[in-house]
């Protein structure tokens, strides 16, 4: 690892004002689980490492109608917080599948979102939940829907010098149930071949699906929102329907071939995961 200067601002303003001058020479660090690897492998050789860990305001989590997560909220706390597990079950389920406990303790939700790695679990669930990304920069703050935030692998809507300071997650509609599935080769803590989040809302009287959202990860440069999920709405859930929608969703993906498998295989896995996530969500809704 090459030497760098360690900067530890204590407020967002301090951070953004430093970055307004030095963004190009800086690596922003949240929990450090990605940043340290990048430094270790020499992928980046920043002059400054800006550690956001000293900004207490970024650790605040509130639940008032919607869920507000400070950017430094740990992945582990998304998994463990009973209130999040109750109302935002899909998110805590996705969080519980990230890497291992040591990584989840260190990694932050803001970092997971800002890094833009296509394989990460939490952005997929947050996209299914229609979250909004809160951004701060020297020229001010803005909010952007997470689906618009991702531009490509490791590419986001963040302008130079901007930070992800929080995530806002609207409360899912009543009678919504979600499920997150991932598939890895070898140990479950490895990067997945694919992952998928499904969120469906059922009409309690008719039993029909009134809202549905399906998002897949690791099978495109960004989380892939399945347009075909619209085909679920108005239907009575059943295995054939789920298999059909899952097959359509898999066709919307754009995976690359790598050591985790060829393109056809990743699509197959995406299909299997979507199908399993939908079945799992239905099962949860039944009880």
């Amino acid at each position: 690892m090459r030497p760098f200067e360690y900067i530890k601002p204590s407020t967002v303003d301090e951070a953004t004002s430093f970055l307004s001058q030095n963004a190009e020479d800086s690596l922003i660090m949240g929990g450090g689980t990605a940043a340290v690897v990048l430094l270790h492998l020499g992928v980046v050789r920043p002059r400054y490492v800006v550690d956001l860990g000293g900004i207490g305001a970024l650790r605040e989590t509130t639940m008032k109608g919607s869920l507000h997560l400070g950017a430094l909220t740990s992945i582990r706390s998304l998994e463990r917080d009973p209130a999040i597990a109750a109302d935002y079950n899909l998110l805590s389920e996705a969080a519980s599948q990230v890497a291992n406990i040591r990584v989840r303790n260190a990694a932050s939700v803001g970092g997971a979102v800002a890094y833009g790695e296509p394989q990460t679990d939490t952005p997929v669930a947050l996209t299914a939940l229609d979250a909004t990304v809160e951004i701060a920069g020297a020229s001010g703050a803005r909010q952007i829907p997470i689906a618009d935030f991702y531009r490509g692998p490791y590419e986001t809507a963040l302008e130079q010098g901007e930070l992800v300071v929080g995530i806002n997650v609207p409360k899912p509609a009543a009678n919504s149930v979600g499920c997150h599935m991932k598939f890895t080769i070898g140990s479950p803590e490895n990067k997945p071949v694919a992952n998928a989040s499904a969120l469906i809302a059922l009409d309690p009287s008719s039993g029909k699906i009134i809202a549905a959202r399906v998002v897949m990860g690791a099978v495109g440069g960004t989380p892939v929102v399945a347009a075909s999920a619209a085909g679920l709405v108005g239907e009575t859930p059943n295995d054939d329907l789920f298999a059909d929608i899952a097959a359509q969703a898999a066709n919307e993906t754009d995976p690359i071939e790598d050591l985790r498998g060829p393109v056809w295989y990743k699509r197959r896995i995406a299909k299997v995961l979507v199908e399993r996530a939908l079945k799992c969500a239905l099962q949860k809704s039944q009880g």
Binding site: G186, E189, N190, K191
Partner: peptide
Amino acid sequence: LMNPTLMDYPLPTMQT
């Protein structure tokens, strides 16, 4: 070598 780091080279763990 296409997988020269432990990020790309999967190893058994307690979970497996």
